[in-house]
Structure formats: C-alpha cells, structure tokens
Amino acid sequence: MRERRSTLHHRFLSTSALHLLLVALSLTMVLPFLWMVLTSLKPVAEVGLENWLPRKPKWDNYAEVFRVIPFARFYWNSLFVAAWVTFLTVFTSSLAAFSFARLRWPGRDKVFLLYLSTTMLPGLVTMLPNYQIMIKLGLVDTFAGLILPAGFTALGTFLLRQFMLTIPSSLDEAAEMDGASKWRIYWDIILPLSRPGVIALTIFTFIGNYHSFFWPLVMLKSVHRYTLPIGLLFFDTSRGQSTHLIMAAVTMSVLPMIVLFVVLQKYLVKGIQLGAIKG
C-alpha cells in the first residue's frame, strides 16, 4: 500500500514537471505573437518602449491600415488566387490520380514514374522560363498568370493516388458489373471515398498558395493586384517606421490562419502523416 502511494506521488511530480516544461516551451512559441498583437494596439510613440502594453489600446490602428494601403483588396486577391489554384489542383489531380490508381492502360506505370520524377526539380528551375512564357502570352501582372502555373501539380496527383490505392478494387468491379461508366465510378464511388485525402490536399494547397511569395513577387507589378505577402512586403518597405500599423496588418493576415488551423487540425495532422507514407 505504501509502495503504491509512493509511485502515485512520483508520477504526480514527474507529470507536473513535464507540464511546466511544456508551458515554458509554449511560452516561447506564443510570446512573439503576444508582442505582435500588443504592439498593433500602441500609438506610434510607444512602440519602442520596454512596456509591451499600450497605455490605452488604440483600435483605430486597424482601421488606419485600410486607409493607408488597399488591404481589403490584398485580402481578396489572395483568397481569389488561392481558391482558384486549389480548385484546379484538386480537380485535375483527382482525375489524374484516378487514372493512375484505378484504370489499367498500357504504359501507365512508366508514365507515372516519369511524371513523379519531376517533383525532384527545384521550383526555381521552371520559374525563369515560365516568366518568359508569361511575357509571350501577355499574362504578366494578371491573375491568370498567377493561377495557371500553380494549378497543375504532380505532388497532388501523387498524394491522391496513394490514397486511392487503399480503396478495395472490388468496389469498382461491382459498379462496372452494374454498367456504371468510369466517370460515374470516379465521381460517385472513388472521389467520395477519398474524402480525407481530398480534404488534406485542399487545405495544403490553399495554405501553400496563401503564403505563396516568389512567383507573385516577380509577376505582379500593379499594387491593386498584390496578394497579401507581396502587399505586406510593400507596406514594410514603403512605411517601415510605422511598426504599429505593420503589426496590425501582420496580425490580420496571421489570425485567419490560426483560426483555420484550430478548426481543421484533425484533418491536417492526419494529412501530414499520410503524405509521408512512401509509395
């Protein structure tokens, strides 16, 4: 009996120590964000002070951001571009994945290997000539020029193919007996069953393009077409001294991501672990 009490006691102490360690680590992760929010509420004169808290929260900083730069426009541009890229990627990848995972055709596996091997190429290799192609097509400084090169990826196809391979083939065979076309099998059976994979790909593509930086940076010339990252960079370069306003803008671009993550983390965590399964 005494022994059991002492193990409980030991367990209580070690678990408490563990929690304190985790809290310390969490604080290092959270403090930059705390400083960001508190600074965004300060008047400019208080920015450099050692006290992180504003004497009186100045909520007007947030409205001010919209007055000095077309921030709502940047927001909209980012969402618009990311949504289109995501739609294109998920739709075309799921079709291609269906072809690679569920259809039989001569040369399929060779084509797949060739296709997959391109994922080894650094993105920078294609960006230089792509930019020249965009000049020829007249797509520089347009949304189409941002969306099209990002909308057809091998990685998305790979992820969904891995997922579709885990669905038992007896399902397609049964449907085929009933006279279902391949399109019906794709649309009514395989796609719904691949939902976790599709959701993970949707989230990753969307987030990736919300953060997208290099390509928009070289493509966009007019301020009213800037996406959020380019807009933030422009804001920081042109008004670097207004730390309080820049922090308000940063807060507004980071906050939706945090909310999104907390809401969707179940799918995300699974999707990341799924993506690492090698095929």
């Binding site: 079709l95 291609a96 269906f98 391109t118 192609i133």
Partner: peptide
C-alpha cells in the same frame, strides 16, 4: 482522365524544364 492535369503540366512544367 489524365489530360486536364497533364496538359497544364506539360505547358507549365515540362516545357519550362526543357527550356
């Protein structure tokens, strides 16, 4: 089924890689 993805992929990845 492959076409929509592979066509875009050819134009915006394969051709640029070759170039």
């Amino acid at each position: 089924f492959l076409a929509p993805n592979i066509l875009g992929f050819l134009i915006f990845t394969i051709v640029p890689v070759a170039l």
